[in-house]
Design a protein around this nucleic acid. Structure first.
Lengths: 125, 125
DNA sequence: TTGCGTGCAAAGGTTTTGCATGGCA
DNA sequence: TGCCATGCAAAACCTTTGCACGCAA
């Protein structure tokens, strides 16, 4: 994985917006004069393969999010449908809940790809 | 909303597969000799507007699911990423969990659009 | 120097739209 | 009869691919 200018430009956007997610189209619009759209799609795929970002879903479309360094396999994610922000839920009750689902309902939760949607504190004011 | 042959054919598929979800493409393939793809897209939009089905997301793509009559606004949904089946989680601990998220983290959960992904009992055998 | 990254243009795939016709209530 | 639903074809839109060239290591 070469460290190219294009790659850095893309990662910059994710790093500067750590709690937001972007559709491919949004990134293309933001970068269209700086790099080709084919390159953007190829970089997104590469970054996803290397776990720098991850694919997720908004209400209606595929989005890409920055892959945080802390362990996303071990906690739920809350996403606010109003402002789009993502919250990493560090909460022992959440883990108890997931264990309960496994013990009593036989269902093994995949934290990484499960996103709980709703409205955050700020936005419900 | 007229009760046409096309509409019935589509609803039949959802009713006969109550716990599965389908991409538009899967429905098109299944119905391509019976109705036009434009009609399928138009019907899917209409059915969604009328809350007969709902949009959701699989690992990678948009899917449509049958809208059950019981109250989906009041419980989480578990979706198995192997077999695709959806389970309606009737569980008091789940509600406690959601209340906790609200009380202690200020986040109001939207059950309807939150799908917890993982692997079901059958598929983990 | 090697091989990945990039731009361009074209192709591929999915979804939407315009328009004339058909069918339900 | 009035209006929604449909089929067809074209358009619009998003994403991927082939190829030749550029650039990082």
């Amino acid at each position: 994985m070469y460290n190219t200018k294009n790659k850095r430009q893309l990662i910059d956007i994710f790093e500067q917006n750590k709690n937001l997610s972007f559709t491919a189209i949004e990134l293309i619009q933001q970068l269209e004069e700086k790099m080709n759209r084919a390159t953007i799609y190829r970089q997104l795929n590469t970054l996803e393969k290397n776990a720098v970002i991850r694919k997720n879903f908004n209400d209606t479309t595929k989005v890409y999010e920055y892959q945080y360094s802390d362990n996303c396999n071990e906690h739920f994610h809350l996403k606010c449908t109003k402002c789009g922000k993502i919250f990493h839920l560090q909460c022992s009750l959440a883990n108890e809940f997931a264990n309960h689902i496994y013990d009593h309902h036989g269902f093994k939760v995949n934290y990484y790809s499960s996103t709980i949607l709703g409205v955050c504190k700020e936005c419900s004011k």
